[in-house]
Simulated assay, not measured.
Amino acid sequence: MVTCLEPTEAISPSRSLQSLTKLATKFPRLIPPEELDQLDDEWRAILYSRDKLQSCVNKTPVEFWISVGKITDGFGELKFTVVSKLMKALLVLPHSSACVERVFSEVNLVKTPTTNGPTVANRLLARQHLRRNEKNCHTWTPSKELLNSVQSGQCHSRYTTRLCQKATENVVTFYDVLDGTN
């Protein structure tokens, strides 16, 4: 069903999905039921805008659907608000749970019957840091800043501050993709 995200598939007269209702109902929080008819109308109308979209067909799916969302009619009104909203939302969904499964496997490697949650989390962080820097526990030398953070008990709060900053950046990026500003 998600082949409809591909630009060439979206503007093809012989596309595999004639209606997006079935796909949209799998994600009821994205498109409310009262907008499903408009969604299908817009999906069919994309074929009539093929000339305008031909220049976008070689773009990435994200760029393509942002371009679709900016197309206006003769009155200057946006023509494809619902279909572009659905497609952009589908594009930001995770396509695999493999990375989560890898983390669970690592948890099983570092936990013992007596370790608690924060200890397991700290061990995972240490492993990730070493891996990112292509080191192992025998070849890594901690920086003076890290040693001072550990001695003062600030190591975990330093990490959570950085994590919150990254999470905020990701949320902003997610909403930028949805509204087409990025």
Rank of each mutant, 00 (worst) to 15 (best):
S157E: 11
V100T: 09
Y159T: 00
S105K: 00
R131Y: 06
S105R: 00
C137N: 02
E145N: 00
R158M: 11
Q128R: 00
E106F: 11
T114G: 07
S143I: 09
P118V: 14
E145S: 09
R132I: 15
Y159Q: 00
H138D: 10
S143L: 10
Q154N: 08
F104Q: 09
N136H: 06
E106N: 05
L124W: 02
W140Q: 13
G117R: 00
Q128D: 10
V150T: 05
E101R: 03
W140N: 12
C99S: 15
V110F: 03
T115Y: 12
V103C: 07
H129R: 03
N136E: 06
N122A: 15
T119W: 01
L146I: 14
R132S: 13
V110W: 01
S149C: 14
H156W: 11
L124F: 04
N108G: 08
G153Y: 08
V120R: 01
L125K: 05
C155R: 11
S149L: 15
L124I: 07
R131H: 12
E134Q: 10
L125D: 01
V103D: 02
R131V: 13
N108Q: 07
E134W: 05
N108E: 08
C99Y: 14
P142E: 02
E106W: 05
Q154V: 01
N122Y: 12
Y159I: 05
R123S: 09
N122H: 13
V150F: 08
V120C: 01
C99W: 12
S105V: 03
S149P: 00
R123M: 07
T139Q: 05
A126H: 06
S105N: 01
V110N: 02
K135S: 15
R131D: 14
T115S: 15
V103L: 14
P118G: 08
R131N: 11
N116V: 07
E134L: 11
K111F: 03
Q151D: 12
H138A: 09
N122E: 15
S105T: 05
V103G: 03
R102I: 07
S152Q: 11
T139D: 08
A121L: 10
T139V: 06
T112R: 03
E134F: 09
S105F: 01
N148H: 14
V107W: 02
L109W: 01
N116A: 08
V110A: 02
R102H: 07
E101M: 04
E145F: 05
R131M: 12
H129M: 13
R123K: 07
T112G: 03
P113K: 06
N136G: 08
C155G: 06
V110H: 01
T114H: 08
R127V: 10
K144S: 15
V150C: 06
T114I: 07
N108H: 08
H129A: 15
H156K: 13
T115R: 12
V110Q: 02
Q128T: 04
S149M: 15
N136D: 14
E101L: 06
L146C: 14
V100F: 11
K144N: 15
H129Y: 14
P142A: 09
E101S: 04
A126S: 09
Q128A: 10
Q128E: 11
